[in-house]
Nucleic acid binder design. Structure first.
Length: 321
DNA sequence: GAAACACCCCGCCATC
DNA sequence: AAGATGGCGGGGTGTT
């Protein structure tokens, strides 16, 4: 049994603190025998007042955190690391534990000196502060989560969920992670490198302006589309198109196209019986070989395995013991 | 898996 | 004066 310890600190936000329990505390997906055991661990043994007036009692001590296989640090109160917690985290790391922080929890790992010289991230509101206090950390404020040398850090709130799913993926494979994601009703895989926020969250003239362009692209998604094509369609230079596209969607044309193509492929695999070879063509991902490798690279499973797992219930009876 | 090829895309910067 | 544009260079990425 893989033990997971969640460091609980006074004033910690509920969501960040709870995601690990949701992911690692649920019953294992079909086909997984050895799952996780999650514990809330804290310095001292009195009740702990969390954010929003919730009180935690009956938790484990800090020794259980030190001995865990994976340690999750969801938050740092006031961006300060309780010395005893930082010490415990460092000891856990020395013992070979896998470490993961969510949101401001990165400040605890940083205070323990574990992020020095490593790539790390945190909530975008705190990224500058983290870099200021610890100049040797390579802070990337634009990703959902990063891993460097067995130490994982993730951005705010929901990115912690993506990180926990990534850990499941590494431990038990993509199918198990996808099953967990499906039960939680969240997207199965958000890549760690995905931007933390879209540059313009509120629709602006820009965004409304490119909507028809996106529509046009979706309408011919099965055929090759280059930046030059998009630029011509939008009556602007390729250089300006790339800029405007980024402003409006938070990503680049090719990445957006690939994302749409993968989504379409997923849909076709889930809801139809169209052969994989033809799904490759319909989704615009090129040759079947290229399609397979791209699909696998993005979602961690092969197209046929994906179809096997997510086939719409009722179509073909799946293997259910 | 390697290699060739096309295309991407982002900093730079003169220009509008 | 300030911001948007778009050509260019070339390391990076994707496809065959």
């Amino acid at each position: 049994m893989h033990s997971v310890a969640v460091a609980v600190t006074p004033g910690a936000p509920l969501f960040e603190t709870s995601v690990a329990f949701e992911v690692f505390g649920m019953s294992p997906p079909d086909g997984v025998a050895v799952w996780y055991e999650v514990r809330a661990c804290a310095v001292g043994n009195g009740p702990i007042r969390l954010a929003s007036g919730f009180v935690l009692d009956g938790h484990h001590g800090i020794d259980d955190l030190v001995g865990a296989d994976t340690v999750i640090v969801p938050a740092a109160p006031e961006l300060e690391a309780p010395p005893a917690l930082a010490e415990a985290v460092r000891t856990a790391h020395d013992r070979g534990a896998r470490l993961a922080s969510i949101c401001s929890g990165a400040f605890v790992l940083a205070a323990a000196g574990l992020l020095d010289g490593r790539r790390a991230t945190t909530h975008w509101r705190y990224a500058a502060e983290l870099a200021r206090r610890h100049p040797s950390i390579v802070v990337d404020p634009a990703v959902l989560y990063v891993e460097d040398g067995g130490i994982f850090t993730s951005a705010g709130t929901a990115a912690g969920l993506d990180l926990c799913l990534e850990l499941v993926r590494r431990d038990h494979g993509a199918a198990a992670a996808n099953a967990v994601a499906r039960r939680l009703v969240v997207p199965p895989h958000r890549d760690g490198g995905q931007a933390q926020y879209v540059a313009t969250a509120v629709p602006t003239g820009d965004q409304l302006g490119i909507a028809p362009l996106l529509e046009w692209a979706l309408g011919r998604i099965d055929r090759p589309i280059t930046v030059a094509d998009l630029a011509a369609q939008a009556h602007m230079s390729p250089r300006t198109l790339v800029r405007r596209f980024g402003d409006a969607t938070g990503t680049t044309p090719l990445r957006w196209l690939t994302m749409q193509r993968i989504r379409l492929a997923q849909q076709l695999l889930e809801t139809t019986e169209i052969p994989v070879e033809r799904v490759a063509g319909l989704s615009g991902l090129g040759s079947p070989a290229n399609f397979r490798s791209r699909f696998r690279q993005t979602l961690g499973v092969t197209p046929s395995a994906y179809r096997q797992t997510f086939r719409t219930p009722g179509r073909t009876p799946g293997p259910r013991p």
